[in-house]
Design a protein around this nucleic acid. Structure first.
Lengths: 168, 168
DNA sequence: TTAAACTTTCAAAACTTTTTGAAAGTTTAT
DNA sequence: ATAAACTTTCAAAAAGTTTTGAAAGTTTAA
């Protein structure tokens, strides 16, 4: 397989994975493109490479910036904006975990905390089942939350080192 | 808040979380409903509770079975099929991890393994960047894969106990 | 065998999300 | 101030996903 075909395949695969995990396909593809491109690209170049419209490219690039996955670069003497991706996979994973935690896990935890408080008849099986499930999910979510928190603060070698100690 | 409202809220929240993570909203809602319901429900009852059509209920229940999250139950002397959810949150998490690993992570690993093999000019920055990103992602994915594998075999108390040892 | 009870299917409709592209907005250089 | 170069917006269109419900299929009991 040659480089251009391989690049294409990578962009496609990453896009598919993204869409299966609730990330818009185009966003994942633009990210993939920037990941395998050594230098920063303009909106125009992204549009060209992926055959997408100006509006779509612009929105997607802004989204990627709001996720902290890419950054703008200004070249001296040029008006155009160039975009490049952080290539450190560990940073990417952290960044994604951080955003999803904030956007999705936190609101769920808030609701669960409320639902755990709901009072009811301890002899009613409907109440007992509700209470147990909600409490269990709440506990697990809090564990996940705490684990993510630590992971976000951690550095890579330490993290995988520790994981390997358990999972040897 | 009273039980029926709380139940409603739980079903809604779980559905929203599901859809953000690439799981169809209705599927997550049906699962939520069965999680907080002490006894097994018929298709009819699920349709009723969530105001969904017969076709939708049937497909969703089958999907949930294929994910290993719910099971059919037959009551003696009855023709109807009853469905109930495994209420053990740890099992649920394991089951979901197992399925997603099989359905999504494995195919990606296969492609990455191919892409890592792609040969090119070591002085070409385009090739160098491609190769490095693909290799890094491949390594991280393999780590995730191995970690999941261990987690799938593990039992809950052992798992969180070990996690806490690291993340204390 | 028949028919009632129940489950499954799937094409069409409804709904949701994403994309487009032209127009409006902004910035910079002269 | 003007105009060229560039970025952003957003309503409408396209694409993708989910849901419906009626019809077909299956199972069971008598």
């Amino acid at each position: 397989m040659q480089l251009p075909e391989a690049k294409q395949k990578f962009i496609e695969t990453w896009g598919k994975l993204g869409s299966e995990w609730g990330i818009n396909r185009t966003m994942a593809q633009v990210h993939a493109l920037l990941l395998v491109t050594p230098d920063a690209l303009t909106t125009e170049e992204v549009m060209e490479e992926l055959s997408i419209s100006r509006g779509n490219a612009n929105m997607t690039l802004r989204d990627l910036m709001s996720w902290g996955l890419i950054e703008k670069q200004h070249k001296p003497g040029e008006r155009k904006e160039y975009f490049y991706a952080d290539k450190d996979i560990w940073n990417i994973a952290r960044q994604v975990a951080k955003e999803r935690r904030k956007r999705e896990l936190e609101p769920v935890l808030k609701v669960l905390d409320e639902l755990v408080q709901v009072k009811g008849d301890k002899n009613d099986p409907a109440f007992k089942t509700f209470h147990k499930s909600v409490t269990d999910i709440n506990k697990m979510s809090k564990n996940v939350d705490r684990t993510l928190d630590t992971m976000l603060k951690a550095d890579e070698s330490w993290f995988w080192g520790s994981i390997f100690k358990i999972f040897k």
